[in-house]
Structures are given as C-alpha cells and as structure tokens.
C-alpha cells in the first residue's frame, strides 16, 4: 500500500511517543515518585498505534492498562496525564483513579475497570450512543489475552453482536497474563480471533509489531464496522517486553525469547529503519523528535511533582454529580 508522507510521519510520531512515554513511566517508577504500579506497555506500541491510526473524531476508546500512553495519543494533555499518575489534583480524576484511570471523556476515552474485563460492556454502551445518534463512529475495546478468558468480555461480544453495534474488539495478545502464558489458558491459539465466530464477527490476526500491517488489517475491519455491519475483532500478536508490573523478575519465561523479541521485533526500530531507507525521515529529525518529547515529558513530570494533592477536606469531591 502507498502512503502519504504526512500519514507516515503521524504514525511514526505516535509510535515513537508511545515508546518514549512507556519507557519514561518505568524510569519515574524507579525514582520512587509513582505511588502505584506501572504496567509497562513496551512491546505493544505497534499494535496500539496501528489500530488507533484508523480512528476519527467522535470515536470512543476503552483502553487496556498498557500502554497508558494511548490516553496521551488520543488527546490527554501531559499535565493531566502525569498529574493523575502521581495522584495529584491536576490529574484528570483529581488523583482518585491513578494509573488505571487516565484519559478524558472529551477525547472519547470511556474509562477503565481495574477488575479487568468488567468494563467490556462500557464499550458496547458507547456504541449504543453512536447507534442512537446515527453517527458513523465506532467504539474500540482493547483487551489482553488474559482478559479474553473473562465472562463479561464474552457477554459484551454477545450483546454487541445481538444489537449489531459498531464495536471493534482489539485483542492485544502479549502472550502473558501476569505469569500465565496464553497457551496455557486458551485451548485455541488465538484467544480473541478463534472465539469470534461464536458471535458472528469477522476477524483478522496480525503481527502486532508491524505498525502498518496492523493498520491495514484494522482498516478493513473498521470499514466493515463503520458501515453498520456490527462488531468485528482484530487480534494483535506481540510480546510483553517487561514484567507484568515493574519489579516482576519474569522468572517464569525464557530471557532469550524476550531478548529476541526486543532486538528482532522492535516495532519502533523496524518502522524507523523503513522510513530512513525510504527517505521519509532523517537521523537528525528522529534525534530532535526524541529530544523534544523527552523534554516535554520531563517538564510535565516536574509540574506533577510540584502540583497540589487532595486534602482531607476534598475527599468527597466528585463522588456525586
């Protein structure tokens, strides 16, 4: 497929920013300034950005707990992003939600349940609004291979297909539910795609480390969903580079395999090599992009560190509308 340069630059920028942000999260966690856990999304940038490259204004997003950078990519300002992560009043949820609850409704982010999968129906509900308002938007539901086992996910697929709603289910198969390999939990090789037939959904399985392959496979399904044909499902195969949370030593898996994925299936490095080869970007451009983004993040983190936190008198704020 031929792409316009602007499109390639946009995809690359989002891909690189997702990587840099996920890396930064691990760094500030190591510094001890993050009160909660960090579930690094390194290794899943290609699939998220590939899928999100099909989005348009008015779409809704139910993201997973990694990569958190997805919330920034669709519009959350860095100050609100890092403010929430550090539990400050400048965060989108005043510090009540933290690491699992970043994002803003005005960007289409519909929220997240820390009891993974309990929020599957939320994406269906957002699609119900789209249907009621007769818009050609869609609702994206990102979930992992671990969450693929949960009943609420299957109930959401059942309801979305029954009501023929515009939902794109995105199974992020990073191969591990904390320590449990997907091959143990699932009797089929593709815990997303292989089960979709039960709900009459068209599917695709794609290499999640190839951002353009993800985009192309997703776009076909998105066209189908936007046209009012009902839900569809894409499964992205990838590998979680780091542990479930920071501090996880990953003793349950083969470090050589991890190393292989990190060196041979690095979605950012692979895409940048292609763009350099095609003359779309230069080394100087890449270096500046990295430097500018890193600086912007450091500034936002400094703001978040200095930002005020909730006081005891504020504890009931935002409980009721």
């Amino acid at each position: 497929m031929e792409y316009a340069k602007d499109f390639l630059l946009k995809v690359h920028k989002e891909l690189l920013e997702t990587r840099l942000m996920e890396k930064k999260l691990t760094e500030i966690y190591a510094q001890g300034i993050v009160p909660g856990h960090i579930h690094s999304g390194m290794g899943q940038e290609g699939s998220y950005v590939g899928v999100l490259s099909t989005r348009k204004k008015g779409d809704y997003f139910k993201f997973g707990h990694r990569p958190l950078a997805a919330n920034y990519i669709v519009g959350e300002p860095m100050d609100a992003f890092f403010g929430e992560l550090l539990g400050k009043l400048t965060g989108n949820a005043l510090g009540h939600g933290g690491t699992n609850h970043l994002g803003r409704l005005q960007d289409g982010v519909v929220g997240f349940s820390g009891s993974l999968g309990c929020d599957a129906g939320v994406a269906v509900g957002a699609a119900l609004t789209i249907d009621a308002e007769q818009r050609d938007n869609i609702s994206y539901f990102f979930y992992g291979d671990g969450t693929a086992s949960r009943g609420p996910v299957h109930e959401a697929m059942c309801l979305a297909s029954c009501w023929k709603l515009p939902v794109l289910f995105v199974c992020e198969n990073n191969q591990f539910a904390i320590s449990t390999p997907s091959s143990y939990s699932s009797a089929v090789p593709n815990p997303g795609a292989d089960r979709a037939a039960g709900y009459g959904m068209p599917t695709a399985v794609v290499d999640g480390t190839d951002v353009l392959a993800v985009y192309e496979a997703t776009q076909k399904l998105v066209d189908y969903v936007r046209a009012g044909n009902g839900p569809a499902l894409i499964e992205c195969k990838e590998y979680r580079w780091r542990g479930h949370f920071e501090g996880d030593q990953c003793a349950y898996r083969d470090a050589d395999v991890t190393h292989k994925y990190m060196t041979e299936k690095d979605s950012v490095a692979l895409f940048e090599a292609k763009l350099l080869e095609q003359g779309v970007v230069t080394e100087e451009y890449l270096a500046k992009l990295r430097e500018d983004f890193d600086k912007a993040m450091d500034e936002a983190i400094a703001h978040a560190v200095e930002a005020p936190a909730m006081q005891p008198a504020d504890i009931y704020d935002c409980l009721y509308a």
Partner: peptide, 13 residues
Amino acid sequence: TAMVGAAIGSAET
C-alpha cells in the same frame, strides 16, 4: 455484566 456496562457507556456519552 454487559447490560450494566452498556448502561455506563451509553450514560456517560
């Protein structure tokens, strides 16, 4: 579970 989720998702939007 999906019905409750659908209520949340449609209400907030």
